[in-house]
Nucleic acid binder design. Structure first.
Length: 626
RNA sequence: GGUUCCGUAGCUCAGCUGGAUAGAGCAACAGCCUUCUAAGCUGUGGGUCCUUGGUUCGAAUCCAAGCGGAAUCACCA
């Protein structure tokens, strides 16, 4: 790390000249602005007092000292209080050849990608994620893995745009953490019980006439969702009649409607394990899971561990009762059990109803316990929308109240809502964007655009379909992941399928172009190019691209620690843009000077590797041709 | 009403652990394909970084207050 060497040298110099000690870790070097000559910049203002000289003079003193003390510092300039350091080209090219060597030779210059030998899996995070459990067994991360929970669907409705952001975020965060060296468990908590499922069941029993996904040709989750909608519309009818007749409020009317009572009755029977009810429940949930699996598969997300609330709420109830016995919780006269959060200046939280049934919070307590017992995780990350900020705050406090050792390991990765151009999605107003429909549309657009450009005539039908999928999903994923998770985001359907500018397909296209060049170069030529060439002199674009690639490790570390795929996404765009500029201005294979041509090949090679690796951490595939 | 989050170009977003002249894309306009993929590249115009105060050599970035928006404060999940 040259930054560290420089920082130490600066600290030494300050000590020598002023007799003051500075911790080298407090000396921060930043990247030099693009419009100024230099690679690294030291802001000297913090040292002027110690030197009792002008900023320019201080910069000069430090610059001269660094020239002597640090080999790769070749030259410096001083602009006001900024000391700009220029590193030797050999430093950058050294990085390049080392990185290319480490990442191993890209073999994706042809369509046959899977003949890689295994040695590169160690270093390629995108590969690493496929290796699953069992790695790092002797290290801390394995003993205390990170559990990332995401998706968390209800089983009464199909997945929609909100789930899409959740799934993409969760999956990507898991990948980023893995790439940063953690052992990660991807978990899904399925909300498979409750009144909402009973509504779908009731509607199916009453109006379904035994229809199944097979007989209707409908995806299971869609079919069940239809019955949920059917229930709601029938309920609205009943409630409407009651309101007119009795003049009661809408809520009262809904609650009093016969359908609602039937649904509640169904829930009670479910909790009592009525065999007939349980059978319908299992059957309909089964349909939903098949539907979800198809959607997940298409979306490219997966899970290592499934949790079902129908299991975890029981554990939750036990813990709550235990807490009651221990005196951590208290019971009211009606028999309901509560957590007193008065010491945190919050209202009490109900954990068990008077009739002994449990609520959402109860179930989350149980889930946390089960995870703790099975995995002893160092951290439990919950990818859940910011509408539940309060819920997770309370969950953490209750677990503390119960004296659970894992209470502090809970982290709510809170993300903002997805809004549509005309406001929030509202199921009642039918403005919900269905996940499957959305993917269909993205792929269809990718198909249309690709066919218009007509570069894929010689593709097989199979390859074409795969390509459309890759591009369509790339557009969707990048569009969603490039914005800071914390922020609400606007989903504009028209912009999301754009493929020019700051988009997923732009980055994919850059990758495909590189592959095209590498393919043309051929294997022997690539081998020749990987040899370190000390004499190389870089031009501006080459150096700019190389410096951008150099940042990868830093960006990965930040994206992982901040759990922000957006960091990686925006960096990917920067890499692609830098490459395109370089590619536009300089010829790679047609360059007459052999060593320059070789250098550019290596540079392209590393760019391709960085793009492929980084995009994989976003869950985005890159095509070798498009 | 309390709490939390957000406010940057016409639009969508970067930049925020304090550093130089605040950046991209889209949209608009003007250029660049006999040369490795033009899904690309280059240029022009476009800013009260919500407001006011404070801290500092230096604030879009930190602090306080205000304004505007969102979420939440369920015996829903």
């Amino acid at each position: 790390m040259i930054e560290k060497k420089i920082a130490i040298a600066v600290a030494e110099t300050v000590a020598e000249v002023c007799g003051q000690t500075v911790d080298h870790r407090d000396i921060i070097l930043q990247k030099t602005r693009k419009d100024v000559e230099g690679d690294l910049t030291l802001v000297v203002f913090p040292f002027v007092k110690a030197f009792r000289q002008s900023p320019e003079q201080v910069a000069g003193i430090l610059g001269k000292a660094l020239l002597e003390k640090v080999d790769d510092v070749e030259h410096y300039t001083v602009v006001k209080g900024f000391l700009n350091l220029i590193l030797a080209d050999r430093y950058w090219s050294g990085f390049l050849y080392n990185a290319v060597d480490q990442s191993a030779v890209e073999k994706e210059t042809t369509q046959h990608q899977d003949r890689d030998s295994g040695h590169r899996q160690e270093r390629d995070p995108a590969q690493h994620q496929e290796t699953g459990p069992g790695k790092h067994q002797d290290h801390d991360p394995a003993r205390h893995p990170v559990i990332v929970e995401y998706s968390s669907p209800n089983t009464n409705k199909p997945l929609h745009l909100g789930h899409v952001r959740n799934n993409l975020l969760g999956y990507s965060v898991a990948c980023l953490l893995e790439a940063a060296g953690k052992k990660v468990i991807r978990a899904n908590l399925v909300n498979d019980r409750g009144i909402h499922i009973c509504k779908s069941m009731l509607a199916w029993l009453k109006y379904g006439k035994g229809v199944t996904p097979e007989t209707s040709g409908k995806k299971g989750d869609k079919l069940v969702g239809d019955f949920y909608v059917k229930f709601e519309s029938e309920l609205r009818k009943q409630a409407g009649e009651i309101m007119e007749g009795k003049g009661v409020s809408e809520e009262e009317a809904r609650n009093g409607a016969p359908l609602m009572q039937e649904a509640r009755d169904l829930l009670r029977r479910w909790e009592q394990r009525d065999p007939g009810v349980v059978e319908v429940w299992k059957k309909m949930n089964g349909w939903v899971y098949e539907g979800f699996d198809a959607t997940y598969k298409r979306m490219g997300v997966r899970f290592d561990k499934m949790y079902y609330e129908s299991d975890t709420y029981l554990t939750g109830r036990e813990i709550v009762l235990e807490g009651l016995r221990d005196g951590a919780l208290y019971q009211r006269e009606d028999g309901s059990v509560w957590a007193d959060l008065g010491r945190y200046k919050m209202d009490g939280k109900l954990l068990l109803r008077a009739d002994g049934t449990s609520v959402y919070m109860t179930q989350d307590i149980g889930t946390a316990q089960l995870r703790y017992e099975e995995f002893a995780p160092g951290q439990m990350i919950y990818v859940v929308g910011n509408e539940q900020d309060h819920h997770f705050k309370v969950l953490k406090l209750i677990l503390q109240l119960l004296g659970k050792p894992y209470a502090d390991n809970i982290h709510h990765l809170s993300y903002g809502m997805v809004e549509l151009p005309d406001g929030r999605m509202k199921s009642r107003e039918g403005t919900v964007v269905d996940a499957d429909d959305l993917m269909d549309e993205m792929v269809a657009t990718a198909r249309r655009t690709t066919e218009e450009l007509g570069k894929t005539h010689d593709f097989s039908e199979e390859d074409k379909e795969a390509l459309y999928h890759t591009i369509g999903m790339g557009a969707l994923k990048y569009f969603i992941l490039r914005v800071d998770p914390r922020k609400n985001m606007l989903f504009n359907p028209e912009e999301s399928i754009d493929i020019n500018g700051n988009t997923g397909p732009f980055i994919q296209y850059s990758y495909a172009r590189i592959c095209s060049v590498l393919r043309k170069a051929g294997e022997p030529r690539l081998q020749e190019a990987f040899r370190m060439d000390e004499s190389i002199r870089m031009n501006k674009k080459e150096k700019q691209l190389l410096k951008t690639l150099y940042d990868y490790d830093q960006v990965l570390a930040e994206a992982a620690s901040e759990m922000s795929p957006a960091k990686m996404a925006n960096y990917m765009y920067e890499v692609a843009r830098e490459f395109n500029q370089f590619y536009h201005d300089h010829s790679i294979l047609n360059e007459p000077d052999r060593s320059t041509s070789n250098f550019r090949l290596s540079l392209s090679q590393l760019t391709a590797h960085v793009i492929k690796t980084g995009m994989a951490l976003l869950g985005i595939e890159v095509p070798v041709r498009m």
